[in-house]
Amino acid sequence: MAGWPGESSGERDGTAMEENISLCDAKIGGIYRVLGIELPRATHIRLVALGLTAGTQVTVLNNKRSGSVIFNVRGTRLAVGRRIAERIVVAQA
């Protein structure tokens, strides 16, 4: 389950040594864990409020060459443009 507050995603990451990639480079059908979001506050908070909290698992449903990505998070489907996708850091779950 996701971490209790205070526990940063980095700590848990210690055991799993997978590569950190941006959501842009995620494979269609892959399941990833969100490690961090490096976006201006307003966008960041909007994403987190939509359930994209650190440690959440996302399933990538579509990834176009232009970089816009569709993924499933907490039972809902979100589409984000490249400028957002490239700043969401994930690791293979």
Binding site: R77, A79, R83
Partner: peptide, 12 residues
């Protein structure tokens, strides 16, 4: 300008 307002939309 796109940097400031990229796509973010729910697909129902």
């Amino acid at each position: 300008r796109t940097a400031e307002n990229p796509l973010l939309i729910e697909l129902p």
